[in-house]
């Protein structure tokens, strides 16, 4: 798999994290901060959808904001669950379409996980199946 994300996060409707997975680095918290800060942009983008009726009302939000080393992509479902994927900037081979498919797979995995009756909505995600899907799209060291 060439999809190499550095960090994948699932954020609940109320903006708290349901699931964050990062590649093991020294400073994992920095990804947490990045994801958290990107929520600003996500919210901005969602709130502006209604104003421009001509906007393509896609669930995929695209590149949220780039930093020097990373690019952050966002995706919001209709139920206001947010997926955030952080990719290294140097990974130029990653095309927009690939990111889209990554999100679609994430969404599918999330829906499957939610259908598990042993999962209470709003809790942290601990499903191993979901984790495996995510690990599959992350950069392996």
């Amino acid at each position: 798999m060439s999809n190499m994300a550095v960090c994948v996060a699932v954020i609940a409707k109320e903006n708290y994290p349901l699931f964050i997975k990062t590649t093991p680095t020294d400073n994992e918290l920095q990804f947490y901060y990045t994801v958290h800060t990107s929520l600003d942009v996500v919210e901005e983008k969602i709130s502006s959808v209604g104003k421009n009726a001509n906007d393509l009302r896609e669930l995929y939000l695209g590149l949220l904001y780039p930093t020097e080393d990373y690019k952050v992509y966002g995706y919001v479902t209709n139920t206001k669950v947010k997926f955030v994927v952080v990719v290294e900037s140097s990974n130029t081979s990653l095309r927009d379409n690939e990111i889209r498919t990554m999100f679609k797979r994430l969404h599918g995995a999330y829906v499957d996980m939610l259908s598990n009756p042993f999962y209470n909505p709003g809790e942290n995600i601990v499903s191993r199946k979901f984790e495996n899907v995510v690990m599959g799209m992350m950069k392996q060291d």
Binding site: A12, E14, N15, Y16, P17, L29, Y32, H36, L39
Partner: peptide, 13 residues
């Protein structure tokens, strides 16, 4: 802010 949004790991750090 971190606490209010539920990001406890960040809040505690």
């Amino acid at each position: 802010m971190y606490g209010r949004e539920g990001w406890d790991s960040l809040s505690h750090a």
